[in-house]
Design a protein around this nucleic acid. Structure first.
Length: 430
DNA sequence: ATAGGGTTAG
């Protein structure tokens, strides 16, 4: 009976943790203890993973210590979640320490563990380090699997090194692994990103001849590539063929189509498609709304954009940092600075934290309007969060502060940005 | 009942 109760709690708990509903999960934790049940490694694993995915890595580390104090030993799954969290928030030295600690405790890393680190290295453009991790795996006797190679392929694609990415298909085969649909999708995406649609189609044929069945993600990738390079009629034809073939279209297909229509000046068609999706009760996501809000604001249809904004919650969704970025940028552009300040506060109150891209965009918009003091407030936020300035933000700052009437403002910048002051002075006195 | 890969918005 007690065992059964423990199981029931675990199922509910994991459900919450997986959905990122931390407070609800913690509540279950408390309830379990009240019933005299101690959380086990699965409960802690689920909680730690959820915290790491939300970027709350410090709390995750505390939970891991708490778990150890309660006599529960972390397993490879817990270490994988923690190392994911640490890499993602750029705490690579800590991740390294964790790896040593893990080995000390006699817990052996598996392919999943290494793949997690490789994913983060590749996302940062550090594909060579990911490559050497594969070599390390081999030395440690951990066989790289299909996911290891696919991750590495993506790393090379992201670095624009398509020839090396392609070579990995053969490397996989000689390692006794079959390149799967994800391997091909990754490479197709790489070619499309590089504007090499012809090579993408060539690879697509190669994929078919190797008896790998394309999936909806394959077609979505090509569809997006065609739109991106203005090949509108081919994109439309592909879309119609996808429907005709009876393929189950997904939210990606819908969003790619909506965005493709908007960016090719078919906003009315996009709006119509959006409405028909709504009437069919399709499960839309926040990206759908962001695409529409962006397009409506850019074409001056502010009323419609605000209608979309309010429709978000009616669809059971929550505005994200991109939504807020789109609307705040528009408010600044229109000089509605008080509304902008209020929206920014409302955003923070809702638990949505601005990211580096949003703060950079805000600063640029404020500088454009000569709102130097207000821009300073957001520069301080960038400073606090240890984000960096994007190149376009830096050059705008330099050109603004180079103007006589604004030069004195540069002196009151946070210390981190004093290099701007130095650059300006070098420019003036050389 | 806890961990890893591909496609969409800025």
């Amino acid at each position: 009976m007690v065992f059964h109760l423990h199981q029931t709690f675990n199922i509910v708990f994991c459900e919450y943790a997986k959905g990122g509903m931390i407070y609800e999960a913690m509540h279950i934790f408390d309830q379990m203890r009240q019933q005299g049940l101690s959380p086990n490694v699965v409960n802690y694993g689920a909680l730690i993973d959820a915290l790491c995915k939300l970027g709350r890595v410090d709390e995750a580390m505390l939970r891991c210590n708490q778990m150890i104090n309660e006599g529960v030993t972390p397993n490879i799954i817990v270490f994988t979640s923690l190392v994911y969290g640490l890499c993602t928030v750029d705490k690579w030295e800590k991740a390294d320490e964790l790896f040593s600690e893990m080995l000390n405790q006699g817990i052996y890393p598996n392919a999943t563990f290494f793949n997690t680190i490789m994913r983060n290295l590749c996302n940062e453009g550090r594909v060579m380090e990911a490559q050497s991790l594969v070599d390390l795996m081999v030395r440690l006797g951990v066989r790289p699997d299909v996911i290891s190679y696919n991750t590495l392929i993506d790393g090379y694609c992201l670095a624009g090194r398509m020839e090396e990415a392609m070579k990995l298909l053969d490397v996989m085969v000689s390692a006794g692994l079959e390149p799967d649909v994800v391997a091909y999708n990754t490479l197709l995406h790489g070619y499309c990103r590089a504007g090499r649609i012809y090579d993408a189609f060539r690879l697509f044929r190669q994929m078919l001849s190797n008896a790998v069945t394309p999936g909806v993600a394959t077609y979505n990738t090509i569809l997006h590539g065609l739109f991106q390079y203005g090949r509108f009629s081919e994109a439309k034809e592909l879309y119609l063929n996808m429907i005709k073939s009876g393929m189950q279209l997904d939210i990606y297909t819908c969003n790619i189509m909506l965005n493709g229509l908007c960016k090719n000046n078919f906003l009315d068609d996009a709006f119509e498609m959006f409405q028909s999706l709504c009437s069919m009760d399709s499960q839309l996501d926040i990206i759908t709304f962001n695409i529409m809000i962006d397009a409506l604001l850019k074409s001056g249809r502010k009323e419609d954009a605000m209608g979309m904004l309010t429709a978000i919650s009616a669809h059971g969704l929550v505005p994200d940092v991109v939504t807020y970025r789109l609307v705040t940028e528009n408010l600044i552009k229109e000089g509605l600075l008080e509304e902008f300040d209020n929206l920014f506060l409302a955003m923070e109150k809702s638990g949505c934290t601005p990211n580096s891209g949003m703060l950079n965009a805000i600063i640029r918009r404020l500088l454009d309007r000569g709102e130097i003091m207000r821009a300073g407030v957001y520069l301080s936020k960038i400073d606090e969060k240890n984000f960096s300035l994007e190149a376009s933000t830096t050059s705008l700052l330099l050109s603004v502060f180079s103007r006589e009437e604004y030069r004195h403002h540069a002196k009151s910048l946070p210390e981190k940005f004093h290099f701007l002051w130095v650059l300006i002075n070098e420019h003036y006195f050389k």
